[in-house]
Design a protein around this nucleic acid. Structure first.
Lengths: 143, 143
DNA sequence: CCGTATCCAAAAGGATACTG
DNA sequence: CAGTATCCTTTTGGATACGG
């Protein structure tokens, strides 16, 4: 019989769960587009290919590090293609692949829901925070 | 003339950008559903209301802390409603609001794209990593 | 021009123990 | 039963400096 400590069993269970989670396709996609820049880059590249320096200017606030990192992982996942022109100075263009294009409708659906309903969310948020505030003050008075 | 240091100007620019980013509805929604548990909970609650302890069991791997935290922020944002039955022992049920329900088609679109295309993404990923590995070995040989 | 490398701060999230 | 509180690790992403 194999002896296992509680820790080992937990590690094992956790590993199995992580595996299950990684297999859930929707979760994987959210890991992919849920970060700070991927969606913005998809949009920035939706119409035409762009060179690195243009993206750096067109996407407000992105740092060189994050631009490179995000573009690399998008390339790795087959969402963009990277074309190098070894001129002087060097020029690199990024373009959405077919797979990348197929993702645009999805982000459109997300944006559409957001532009319709996000105000409701923000209202709910304010109402919730106000109510919380009231309760706090009430607690203070009764104390 | 107002004198400002470079640091102040950067802070200012950054603040303005954060504001712009916060105003982008799509980005806000991704911040909302892009976390580890929100989508899973939306699905778990899609059919019928569930009590806290059921959710804890039905959603594999979620901790008490994250369940409570996620449920709270969903409630704050008007996606779920919370009903307390002060019996002994106490009972708390969570139910999707109308707003929460309206989000289900969105996560369906995400899941749909994922179940169709995620295998392509994984293939691209492997191909990319393999190519990278080949290059590494080549570099070693030439060294 | 197009990156890489390094360091660092903030945030997310898990483990565990405790409470009304 | 339904949480809170605390501690800790991991991940994310920004700032800065340097390189081909």
């Amino acid at each position: 019989m194999v002896t296992r400590t509680a820790l080992e069993r937990r590690e094992q269970a956790r590993f199995a769960f992580e595996k299950w989670l990684a297999d859930c396709p929707g979760r994987q996609l959210l890991d992919r587009i849920g970060d700070r820049w991927t969606c913005l880059l998809l949009r920035a590249l939706s119409d035409e290919e762009q060179r690195y320096s243009d993206l750096l200017r067109r996407v407000p606030g992105v740092s060189q590090k994050m631009l490179t990192q995000t573009l690399r992982s998008m390339e790795r996942d087959g969402l963009v293609s990277r074309r190098i022109t070894p001129s002087v100075p060097i020029r690199v263009d990024y373009e959405l692949t077919e797979l990348g294009h197929s993702l645009l409708p999805v982000v459109d659906v997300i944006s559409a829901w957001a532009s319709v309903h996000m105000s409701e969310v923000n209202q709910a948020r304010e109402a919730y925070d106000d109510a919380l505030q009231e309760n706090l003050e009430e607690d203070l008075r009764s104390a």
